[in-house]
């Protein structure tokens, strides 16, 4: 559903993403893993059309990412991005205005589950509440691809469980969910594929159940192995 071919992004002399060729099929929840600055966000932003590649291609359903693909791809960036003059209600209105797949009802439902109210001002939100609002707005869409960049950042344990539940609810055979997070161990049961990136390069792409069956490793074990170079004893 989402495919990149030799995708590269350079900022001057710095290379953020280097020739990543990756194919992500529908029906999966996929984790994008790697340390800060490894290129995960840049890859996602290129898929969302926010960043233009230096070379290579990024395709959605076989066609290059375009205005049309933005209708079906929901990207949630790490940082807060709502206009500061907005209230939670305004955010809902904005999404409703621009995205056909957005459901105000689902949004309100998600807000309630995250213990947020519509009259809250974006300006007045704590970082945890701002993070929850982003998720509520993004998951209230009925996209074909959701890319959540660090959805668990700054969120307390109970809300994280709630968010995991919401993510599972949105998953489906015809959808793709891509999550990038540092909380590798918390995602173990949630995701079924993992993509490991380091310094802009794709290191490995695995099916997690296969990883467990064939190599006896967990997603976190493989992460440690890849990024420290040390063999993990299974």
């Amino acid at each position: 559903m989402l495919e990149s071919r030799e995708l590269t992004k350079k900022y001057g002399s710095k290379t953020a993403v280097s020739g990543i060729s990756l194919k992500l099929e529908a029906g999966h929840i996929c984790a994008m893993l790697g340390p800060n600055g490894s290129g995960k966000t840049t890859w996602m932003k290129m898929a969302a059309g926010l960043v233009k590649p230096t070379s290579g291609e990024i395709l959605f359903e076989g066609a290059p990412v375009s205005i049309e693909s933005r209708r079906h791809i929901a990207y949630m960036s790490t940082e807060p991005y709502f206009y500061t003059w907005m209230s939670a209600k305004d955010v809902g209105k904005y999404y409703e205005d621009f995205f056909e797949d957005f459901s105000v009802e689902r949004y309100r439902n998600l807000l309630a589950r995250m213990e947020l109210t519509e009259d809250l001002k974006v300006k007045a939100l704590s970082s945890g509440m701002a993070a929850k609002l982003k998720i509520a707005a993004t998951l209230a869409r009925d996209a074909k691809v959701w890319m959540l960049d660090e959805p668990f950042n700054g969120i307390d344990l109970l809300a994280r469980d709630q968010i995991r539940e919401c993510i599972v609810e949105r998953a489906g055979e015809d959808r793709l969910l891509l999550l990038s997070s540092h909380l590798v161990e918390e995602m173990e049961t949630l995701v079924d594929r993992a993509v490991y990136i380091r310094e802009g390069v794709l290191i490995e792409s695995v099916d997690l159940e296969q990883l467990r069956t064939e190599r006896g490793l967990s997603m976190a074990d493989l992460y440690r192995q890849i990024y420290t170079g040390k063999e993990v004893i299974a």
């Binding site: 926010l50 205005i67 933005r70 940082e79 807060p80 709502f82 904005y94 621009f98």
Partner: peptide
């Protein structure tokens, strides 16, 4: 700014 997401993720040219 970070707010760029708001405008540029909408399906408009």
């Amino acid at each position: 700014t970070k707010q760029s997401c708001m405008l540029f993720m909408t399906p408009h040219s």
